[in-house]
């Protein structure tokens, strides 16, 4: 990894690019409190709510592992696989306050290190890089005690 490369989010506006305090950026309906991630900015999708007032919120950074799996084979584009391919793990993490499950790749752990119900925390990590940039994504990792 070349030190000159600049870090860019793999997608704009979905999370704060702050490695010390990463947060997912969603919205919460001002009327019914439903949380949206990725952000829903136009209409609340609750069928019993007609609100279009959806201020931005930061989501909880910790949650419980609902399930997990991995991918042992290179997926097709637009995933950018390193050469040689490195298998990766994907976690589904349940956020208590938001009452929702959010997916993410897992940083620094494989399926053998995981167990449903364990506490996970949000982190930022490189998803892929090209000659100029390192593209950063949110990931989950087992929470520090």
């Amino acid at each position: 990894m070349s030190p000159q490369k600049s870090k860019k989010p793999a997608i704009e506006g979905w999370f704060d690019m702050d490695e010390k305090a990463p947060r997912l950026v969603g919205t919460r309906c001002a009327e019914c409190s439903t949380v949206y991630f990725p952000a829903e900015k136009v209409f609340c999708r609750n069928p019993h709510c007609a609100s279009s007032d959806l201020p931005e919120v930061r989501l909880s950074t910790r949650g419980r592992l609902w399930s997990f799996t991995n991918n042992c084979y290179p997926p097709p584009p637009p995933y950018v696989s390193p050469d040689p391919f490195e298998p990766y793990t994907v976690a589904a993490v349940e956020l208590e306050a938001e009452k929702m499950v959010v997916l993410g790749q897992v940083a620094g752990a494989g399926v053998e290190d995981l167990e449903a119900g364990m506490e996970m925390e949000l982190t930022l990590d490189t998803l892929f890089e090209d000659d100029e940039n390192e593209y950063v994504m949110w990931k989950w990792r087992p929470a520090a005690a």
């Binding site: 609902w66 399930s67 991918n71």
Partner: peptide, 23 residues
């Protein structure tokens, strides 16, 4: 986006459901 950002192929979702069943 699910391919780009997560590498979430269809079998990734199937794997999540299968592991959930085990748990």
């Amino acid at each position: 986006l699910r391919f780009r950002l997560l590498g979430a192929t269809n079998p990734i979702y199937f794997g999540l459901y299968a592991r959930r069943r085990m748990e």
